[in-house]
């Protein structure tokens, strides 16, 4: 039986049909948001924020709604479209990403963002903006194109083949995943008691990378680990703790 996907991905996409293609390609792999019934109202919030002609109080409100989804749902990565609205110039995906991650940078909780766009040509301003974004938020983003299959884009097979891999790569680089990897490695390499010591020793160092790094050193974790001998069980508990369960 297939296990329930746990990694939460937020899709910010202006075209419903492309949102559905992504949903189709990534379902069963990730926990995807917004849900289908919520798509329009969520996308409209985004469209309001990117259009600077709307009054600022409406834009602020829409941003709060987007942030509420991210915080409330424990989003781990955003799949971000580039052109997000309007027939006339609006703010782009990069602008929204900067806005969302700007605050998070202070608390060291920058969200990985995979930009996905159908923009075909290597226009300079887009490249420069992305490079600037990467400089501002190093190691937490990548840019891919929507994939051409003859006349159509974002076919589910492309999403499965390319987008998924890119998401996994970025998630792999996320602090949480890094930590899980470290712990997996430690479990294999060391015994349980040594592992606990290693976690304690690493907790301080990892704090910089993981917002809730302090929990690692908590007695609760040591106690929970102390009661198990099976490696898989131990792994599961570690991951649960990391996921805040």
């Amino acid at each position: 039986m297939m296990s329930e996907p746990v990694r939460k991905i937020l899709i910010i996409e202006n075209q419903q049909s492309q949102y559905e293609s992504i949903l189709d390609g990534l379902k069963n792999v990730f926990d995807l948001l917004p849900q289908t019934g919520e798509y329009t109202s969520f996308a409209d919030c985004v469209r309001v924020w990117v259009n600077e002609e709307y009054p600022s109080n409406r834009r602020d409100k829409s941003l709060k709604q987007i942030e509420r989804v991210i915080e409330g749902q424990g989003i781990e990565l955003i799949l971000m479209d580039h052109i997000l609205g309007g027939p006339f110039p609006c703010l782009k995906g990069i602008d929204l990403a900067k806005q969302l991650n700007g605050k998070r940078k202070i608390s060291n909780t920058v969200l990985p963002i995979l930009f996905i766009s159908k923009t075909e040509h290597s226009e300079h301003s887009r490249i420069a903006a992305f490079e600037e974004y990467q400089e501002q938020f190093p190691g937490s983003s990548n840019w891919i194109f929507k994939g051409y299959f003859g006349d159509s884009i974002l076919k589910p097979e492309f999403v499965k083949k390319v987008v998924r891999v890119e998401i996994e790569k970025l998630l792999g680089e996320s602090p949480k995943n890094k930590l899980i990897e470290i712990l997996d490695h430690e479990i294999i390499r060391k015994g349980q008691d040594e592992l606990v010591l290693a976690i304690k020793a690493n907790a301080e160092r990892l704090k910089g990378q993981v917002a809730n790094g302090a929990i690692l050193a908590s007695n609760e974790m040591v106690m929970r680990l102390g009661s198990v001998t099976d490696k898989n069980q131990m792994n599961r508990i570690l991951k649960e703790i990391m996921n805040g369960k």
Binding site: Q15, K118, E120, H121, S122, W143, I144, F145, K146, G147, Y148, D151, S152, I153, V162
Partner: peptide
């Protein structure tokens, strides 16, 4: 990975068939 080759193919194609409209060919299709 960036699908730039696809863009290159399209650039080749536009030599014969220009896409002047702003809407993506995909949307029209």
């Amino acid at each position: 990975k960036n699908e730039e080759f696809a863009a290159l193919r399209e650039v080749e194609a536009t030599k014969r068939f220009a896409y002047l409209a702003g809407h993506g060919r995909q949307m029209l299709q």
